[in-house]
């Protein structure tokens, strides 16, 4: 589904990603871990199409298409979803307008008829139940005044609404209380299908207890320095990153 080959990227002339290789197949869950500032969110930004990150080398194929030449909205319509580490507040744009516009743009791309206002509300209600999001939240402006945890839940709600092929969840677990974490993880599991995939960025093993990854990667200094099964997350939880840094420096 997604193939990243020797991807290098910089921000304001400063190299951040220094040759990433990654292959994600339909039905898989990949986790990316790694110390602060190692480039995890930058990788997510490149995949979603943020323009301040400048790609200097490599290629990214998504379902056979060159992802890097597409606008962010085109990527989203093809099925890329980014759950933001820091969702932005957009006062004055209601959740309903926002989601109805997004759902209908994506439906148009998929050659599906536009949803009527009542069908849309029904669809939204179903998804809200699925991710157990508070009804009040969807009556407000996008993320405006939402608590940290509410913002993260809202990301999962949007994911449920848009039914992406590849969801990149950037620290969706941080800021969530224990119940919310379980709800979010359950939501992700319910939405998991053989034809979609997840790239989960996290600092904690806790989330991976619920969303069990097929593969765990460690990103360090702009490179994937270790790739293993789910047991790697446990090992990192115990030992931290120092041993990996040492291992890496000794290479």
């Amino acid at each position: 589904m997604l193939t990243i080959k020797n991807l290098k990227a910089q921000i304001n002339g400063k190299p951040i990603l220094k040759g990433i290789n990654l292959e994600i197949k339909a039905g898989e869950v990949h986790a990316i871990m790694g110390p602060n500032g190692s480039g995890k969110s930058t990788l997510a930004s490149v995949l979603a199409g943020r323009d301040y990150v400048e790609v200097t080398n490599g290629e990214v194929l998504f379902m056979g298409q060159n992802l890097l030449e597409l606008a962010p909205e085109e990527r989203a319509r093809m099925g890329i979803f980014l759950g933001f580490q820091y969702p932005v507040e957009i006062p004055g744009v209601s959740m309903v307008t926002f989601m109805r516009t997004a759902v209908n743009e994506i439906r148009k791309y998929r050659n599906l008829p536009q949803l009527s206002a009542s069908d849309f509300l029904k669809y939204m209600r179903e998804k809200k139940e699925l991710v157990e999001i508070d009804t009040q939240l969807t009556n407000r402006s996008v993320n405006e005044g939402f608590s940290g945890g509410e913002k993260k839940k809202n990301e999962i709600f949007q994911m449920a609404m848009l039914e992406p092929k590849l969801a990149i969840l950037d620290e969706t677990d941080s800021g969530l209380d224990i119940d919310a974490l379980r709800i979010v993880a359950n939501g992700v599991n319910k939405l998991k299908r053989p034809d979609n995939a997840y790239l989960v960025i996290t600092h904690y093993q806790r989330l991976l207890d619920y969303i069990v990854p097929d593969v765990v990667h460690v990103l360090y200094d702009g490179k994937i320095v270790k790739t293993a099964g789910k047991e790697l997350a446990l090992e990192l939880e115990e030992k931290g990153y120092d041993w990996i840094k040492k291992e890496f420096q000794n290479l």
């Binding site: 909205e73 989203a76 957009i90 743009e105």
Partner: peptide, 23 residues
């Protein structure tokens, strides 16, 4: 940031501008 957020949900550049101006 708001523009990117909207576009990352599949909303076109033009429509994202429209939503933000209207807001």
């Amino acid at each position: 940031d708001a523009m990117f957020y909207l576009r990352s949900r599949g909303i076109s550049h033009k429509e994202s501008c429209q939503l933000l101006m209207f807001a």
